[in-house]
């Protein structure tokens, strides 16, 4: 319910009105529709005629039509990437997925009765973990009368996904030297998927702080 309230607070037009300063494309360029299926769907409607007269951005080179493609997973890979080494990042996430799956399959084997309730699909686990660690509110410093106040403001949907993934990754990177990232990431994701662990705690802490600062909420507008 809180989420629906938030989306009402933040009109969606506001999200889109933010222009990308460094974009190579003028604002009137539209995103490419790379999927063959979607293109064919569009052809049936008159949307297609409208689109054919609009300038279109080049399709991204990591968009894929594969049935195993998942936008959120792809995004996660992008966040893991350091120094443009995306190949490594993809490998790391794959390893992490493998690790998660092995842990879950082991759990399944330990007690066969709960076989149907245990999710062993690593992609679903990641999605669940991200959903569980998405924050609704965050704090920003706003100066009023010479004093900076920590004002709770709602988080846009996009940023909430970003924060969730960032937190998961930060939790995974904070580890002993001997533990490898894929392993630690797997543990963090598994924890978060079961609504436990450091990332979920971090989200709850932030929410608690926002709650205690609710008195400053009106500084957002006035």
């Amino acid at each position: 319910m809180l989420r629906s309230l938030c989306s009402r607070l933040e009109p969606q037009s506001l999200i889109c009105a933010v222009t990308r300063g460094m974009s190579a494309y003028s604002p009137h360029y539209i995103e490419a529709i790379f999927s063959k299926k979607k293109q064919l769907n569009l052809k049936e409607t008159d949307e297609y005629i409208k689109l054919s007269h609009l300038p279109i951005k080049a399709a991204k080179n990591d968009d894929s039509e594969s049935i195993f493609y998942n936008e959120l997973v792809n995004k996660m890979v992008n966040y893991i990437t350091k120094g443009g080494n995306k190949k490594l990042a993809r490998e790391l996430l794959t390893k992490s997925f493998e690790c998660m799956k092995r842990v879950q399959i082991e759990r399944m084997n330990l007690n066969p009765e709960s076989k149907d309730t245990i999710i062993a699909d690593p992609e679903q686990l990641l999605i669940k973990a991200i959903e569980n660690s998405r924050p609704l509110l965050q704090l920003t410093a706003i100066k009023r009368g010479g004093v900076k106040y920590q004002v709770p403001i709602p988080v846009t949907e996009k940023r909430s996904y970003f924060l969730a993934m960032k937190w998961l990754l930060e939790a995974a990177r904070e580890k002993e030297r001997k533990v490898h990232l894929p392993e630690k990431l797997a543990w963090e994701v598994l924890d978060a998927a079961y609504n436990q662990g450091r990332v979920v705690k971090r989200k709850n802490d932030l929410h608690r702080q926002c709650e205690s600062n609710r008195a400053y909420a009106h500084y957002r507008w006035s």
Binding site: C16, H28, I30, E31, L54, L72, K75, I130, Y161
Partner: peptide, 20 residues
Amino acid sequence: MLGRHSFKLPRLTNMCVAYS
């Protein structure tokens, strides 16, 4: 400007809706 909104929206919501 208006046109841009209507096209940008689907992409943004796409990601969110798929996981709702």
